[in-house]
Amino acid sequence: MKSESEESHRKLMGMELAPLHIPFHRRLETLAVIQWWFCFILMGVLVAFLSIYFLFSKYYPLVLLAYLWVYYDRDTPRRGGRRVPWMRRWKIWTHMRNFFPVHLVKTADLDPAKNHLLGFHPHGIMSMGAFVNFGTEATGFSLKYPGITPYILTLAGWFKLPLARDYIMMAGACDVSKESVDWLLGKSSPGNAVVIVVGGATESLEAQPHEYVVYLSKRKGFVRKALQHGASLVPVYSFGETDVYEQVPNPDGSSLRRLQNWLTKMIGFAPPVFHGRGIFNYSVGLLPYRKPIYAVVGKPIPLDKTTNPTQEEIDEAHKTYIASLVALFDEHKAKYGIEDNETLKVI
């Protein structure tokens, strides 16, 4: 039983403070998430700021060389990237996995003689489950799917920044452009698993705890690419992805949502207003809460190769994919604490 003094230490002005004495492994787990959070939120901004700063200093030749390298190497993010297997096995990713923890749930085999396009849902605030499961080996992807190489696709802007681009490519990240998908599914060797967070950053505006919403009804480009290359479509639902942060309520019609919709039209995305826990408290901060994430990989949907699919063929495959995703959600939701009357909303 906690002493009265310890309780008063942990709760100050309504804020629950972290205890002074916690197991060392938990500190390592928090440190691992801090490192990843810094990379996700600040690495691009920091690289851009330092580039401008050093451009007007005696070190400007280094900046010029760095961006010359970006230009020279511009095709690499669209040609499978430059993964480094030992980096994907860093111990820090194991600590990050254990922070939540994150789980990879396999429901069927993926044929290494074919290519696969995995649709990851939902985006959540930062797609923690997508990165840990497919950008690292912390949950044992290569052991669960032998002969399959995962590629997690992200925004092209990352690959225009020196150092940042090379760091994320080490994890197996590639450009989410059509050219990149064509290369991975058509011109590269078989056994690829191309992972796309289908809802994109816009879907993060729906990332509320205990809400189950995916942007999918109008997103058909990934289906077209799967048909063109005869790759199987594989739905992935990440249970708990939207529970690791709390977002300021922004229902349709609210002032905040109108502002976010305007920003989306102007700059292509609108950052959600969210919070989690802090480093030294459990109440407020920018770190995620310690809540479990279960990314359930569904059964592959085989598609016949159709170089020029008709809209009818795309719509039919898209309809099949949605039905498979909804069935995956319904089949597994009870295991992860979701009430039976809850349904997956596809918008």
Results as ranks from 00 to 15, higher is better:
185 L>S: 09
207 A>Q: 04
159 F>L: 08
149 T>W: 00
167 Y>N: 08
189 S>V: 15
158 W>D: 06
170 M>P: 01
151 Y>W: 12
193 A>E: 04
148 I>A: 06
199 G>S: 07
185 L>W: 02
188 S>Q: 04
194 V>F: 03
207 A>D: 03
187 K>G: 10
192 N>G: 05
215 Y>G: 06
199 G>V: 14
139 T>E: 10
199 G>Y: 06
149 T>K: 13
173 A>L: 15
153 L>F: 14
173 A>P: 00
161 L>Q: 02
149 T>I: 10
161 L>I: 12
176 V>N: 13
220 K>Y: 12
163 L>Q: 00
165 R>P: 01
201 A>R: 08
164 A>H: 11
173 A>R: 03
193 A>P: 11
142 S>P: 09
143 L>G: 08
206 E>C: 14
189 S>I: 15
213 V>P: 04
199 G>K: 04
148 I>Q: 02
158 W>T: 05
191 G>N: 07
167 Y>L: 14
152 I>N: 02
220 K>H: 13
205 L>V: 07
207 A>T: 08
141 F>H: 04
149 T>H: 08
203 E>G: 08
189 S>G: 05
197 V>L: 11
190 P>L: 14
166 D>V: 01
148 I>T: 04
180 S>Q: 07
153 L>E: 05
218 K>I: 05
162 P>C: 05
146 P>V: 15
198 V>K: 01
191 G>R: 02
172 G>E: 05
200 G>P: 07
141 F>Y: 07
209 P>V: 05
139 T>A: 08
170 M>A: 14
173 A>W: 06
144 K>A: 07
170 M>S: 14
153 L>G: 03
147 G>Q: 00
202 T>V: 15
160 K>V: 01
216 L>Q: 08
210 H>W: 11
199 G>M: 05
158 W>H: 12
171 A>T: 07
166 D>F: 00
194 V>D: 03
219 R>I: 14
181 V>S: 11
210 H>T: 08
218 K>T: 12
148 I>R: 02
163 L>H: 02
201 A>E: 12
